[in-house]
Design a protein around this nucleic acid. Structure first.
Lengths: 340, 340
DNA sequence: GCAGGGAATGTGAACGCTAACAACGCGGCG
DNA sequence: CGCCGCGTTGTTAGCGTTCACATTCCCTGC
């Protein structure tokens, strides 16, 4: 309202006048161009300071063709895994001088991913990382028309884009082996939603470990990552006396299962051993503390930015990269030797 | 590399040529200007379609002076509360046609908030919402030099900016009253970090309820929101036979306390009743299921965007708004009448 | 003393869009 | 018949940068 409020932001030309140089010299100072006399640079810097000048990134982006903004498309950032990954991404991106523009999908389908990518491309992001470990999302990525580099997090080897993910199969194998080594006859499994690649990888690792030990693989009980689905599966398992060991697809479902067992008077780990996946901060304080497979989501996020940045500077010459970060097995109190 | 890859994106002029009109007419079509003949509009639309033209938002922003991007600065988006709030914000913003640019702080201090705001302002965001319920963050907001509208989430009535938050005091009062009504002599409290406004509000509500009932208020045990800190406090409480009811600052600490009680053989709710705060998705499956105070983080996020948008269109004439969303008390199995 | 060269600086033209105004065509009215 | 006015379209001028190139300056070496 007041004139002082309406006084427009100073622009480069204002700084130039004040410093007694041309706008181009101001630009050079701002961009750290070497060929500027120290004395001139100081004068420009002073003028900038006095005027409170700030470079207009929009105008800059118009000519340079890049916005120093990265897009992130993710599914349900309310979940611990995606949230942590996105956090890692944001930190790494900012450290590298990039902004992060977010799109959270509420459902994952080809159209959703496509729209998100379009949306971000329209805004002019320099690259995007897609945190959407569903098979449908991975497929949606295969023929994306956007000119921007894309890296996928948690997707399988879809071939078309760079991928960074946690070695799910290995983690599941570790968990299952642990249970087997404890003397359990076989290991049951509560799985995640079938269209999640992570879910698939865990089933695969579990099956592999069982097969390697020559044990039968029972049918996995289907879950959807939620504690409630783990609870329901747990109820079923609790009614089956032959069950002594369960590998659960994630920690939240493990919590639900724990609850079901507690309600049915099944004692963990005395009667049933249970292993989760993820190692959310709460797991250590479950009743009992949960043995689980830790995923370093932060590392995944950081790694994805490294790959993306590399791709950015490589230009159209980049080749797809594939990175796998190893899981870590964490033994706590929810597993015990089988009673003979 | 190949020429087909290097063919630059079509621009408005290309569309104009193809449609046999001027670029300005294309602009008019894109912006839904009324005075364009239907037949012309159709021709332009067709040309856009054929060329796969996409408007360059950067160039547009340069002249319109707004980017249709909102900034979000938040603290540790790994936590359920902030993550959910940010999710709500993102959804609401996108529904309104805005992008969301994120900055996650790893520590909250005046300089950090300031830098984040500067950073976003430089990028040209139209407005920003700050999800940083620490007192220090709230203070940092009081004299922000940026010309962009700001709304704070979870901050107290700092006077200088619009605020939307959950009524913490009321929630804490509800929780404490519930415990008192159950016949408990008094209620102990495990608090959050002292510089969080939410923490403060909960202490305040707890104290008020106690005072209203004429009960003494024990010293609150300090925590930091983490399950571990709740565990430590729980250990101390377990050693005090006079403790029969505890109101815990959040669900994660409550989980820790539950664990401590379990280890010490203190039975919940038979010997000690416990109430949490937040209602994270896991709480329902704790052992025992946790009685808690639900915060609707999503609603907070959405509301903050509504306020911000209102502020945007009101221009410099806006007056600060203050919105409070009510909590909801959820009774589960962690509380029981005091044994006389 | 002057040509040559590199460092320092300035100039003009984009970048792709929108805003303001100008121009055009057409029908109705005096 | 000519003029006004309105709906429609075109023209021009920026927005605030950077880039490519031109220019100036000063120093060096013969």
């Amino acid at each position: 309202m007041s004139p002082s409020h309406e006084r427009r932001q100073p622009v480069m030309a204002d700084v130039a006048v004040r410093a007694g140089v041309s706008h181009q010299t101001v630009s050079r100072v701002l961009n750290g161009h070497p060929n500027v006399r120290a004395e001139t640079r100081a004068r420009v810097l002073q003028a900038i300071e006095q005027l409170g000048y700030r470079r207009n990134m929009v105008a800059r982006a118009l000519v340079t063709k890049h916005t120093r903004t990265l897009g992130v498309v993710s599914f349900d950032t309310t979940l611990y895994g995606p949230a942590s990954t996105v956090y890692g991404i944001e930190q790494a991106a900012r450290a590298a001088g990039y902004f992060v523009s977010m799109v959270s999908l509420r459902t994952i389908d080809r159209a959703g991913v496509r729209d998100a990518l379009d949306y971000l491309a329209e805004q002019g992001v320099d690259g995007v990382v897609v945190v959407a470990p569903q098979r449908s999302a991975a497929r949606a990525l295969t023929d994306m028309p956007t000119g921007v580099p894309v890296v996928a997090v948690g997707a399988g080897h879809t071939g078309d884009v760079s991928v960074v993910s946690v070695e799910q199969v290995e983690g599941a194998r570790l968990a299952t082996r642990h249970l087997l080594d404890l003397g359990h006859e076989t290991v049951w499994h509560i799985s995640g939603p079938s269209d999640w690649l992570e879910s698939e990888g865990r089933v695969q690792g579990w099956r592999a470990a069982l097969a390697a030990a020559g044990r039968p693989a029972p049918d996995p009980l289907p879950g959807d990552w939620s504690p409630r689905s783990g609870y329901r599966a747990g109820l079923r398992l609790a009614a089956m006396p032959e069950v002594t060991a369960v590998f659960v697809g994630n920690d939240q479902m493990a919590l639900g299962a724990l609850r079901a067992f507690a309600e049915r008077g099944v004692r963990v780990p005395e009667q049933i051993s249970i292993v989760g996946f993820d190692d959310i901060p709460e797991s250590e304080f479950f009743t009992p503390p949960l043995t689980t497979v830790r995923q370093d989501f932060g590392a995944v996020g950081r790694c994805s930015i490294e790959v993306l940045l590399r791709q950015l500077e490589a230009g159209p010459e980049w080749s797809h990269e594939r990175h796998v970060v190893p899981p870590r097995f964490v033994v706590r109190a929810s597993t015990a030797p089988a009673c003979p």
